[in-house]
Amino acid sequence: MTAALVALRAILHREALRFLGQRGRLVAALVRPLVWLFIFAAGFRAALGLSITPPYQTYIPYETYVVPGLCGMILLFNGMQSSLSLVYDREMGSMRLLLTSPLPRWWLLLSKLIAGAAISVLQAYAFLAIAFAYGIRMTGAGYLGALPAMFFAALMLGALGLMLSSFIRQLENFAGVMNFVIFPMFFLSTALYPLWKMAEASPLLARACAANPFTQAVELIRFALYRQLNAPALGWVALALLVFGALALWGYDPERGTVRRKA
């Protein structure tokens, strides 16, 4: 095995062990979307009428509509959390260790992203399993098809977190990121309401919503869960991944990046 693959495997293994070692983390990661599913969606069902829009071929209850968005929510929170934990000193120590490895820096950062994304996707599947037990069921092929979609979306959201962790100085606490990044991204997306519904309220907001990479990530997952490929969404997510990834790499470049500020 090449040195690069050895390092990737070790980084994946480390993230998995850390995740398994902190049992509370899985519970905490699941409580949030489950509260939305069991309480918010139940209450909202009465208020929001959904018409038939792709990929759905029939009327669906609101709980069914919201499941892909809540998968996205798990990926979004995880992407931010795992990358932003780098901002804190204790994690910065381990990042230093990573960056002084004699492997290419882009590979080390990509490995970290892949490891974070894998953990996020595991959590999203745990959520889908609970939703299945609750009665919101997809086909086997849908669950399978969602794997690459969720992984890709998780990579993109992880890259966003990594980029933020390299640039943000003031928002060094999670609450700040929550208010300025997570909430706007989540509420200005199709996770909770379809685009046409948003357009009824405000065409401007609907346009912002459509341009939001998180919307595209949610739609990619939504279509994949119904065994369909949403090519424009895939393109958007890929573009966002490239842009966020490149900016993160730029941010962690030893000539100009943020590590400098934290030495």
């Binding site: 690069a4 050895v6 390092a7 495997r9 070790a10 480390r14 062990l17 850390r18 381990s94 260790l97």
Partner: peptide, 30 residues
């Protein structure tokens, strides 16, 4: 280069052995 940073860079929740293996892997040793 071998480096010992001022701030600790060990993973407190992983075992002693696992910490060493992780570092070895970052240098391509497995």
């Amino acid at each position: 280069i071998g480096v010992v940073f001022q701030q600790p860079t060990l993973d407190l929740d992983l075992t002693v052995r696992r910490n060493l293996l992780y570092f070895a892997a970052l240098h391509g040793i497995s």
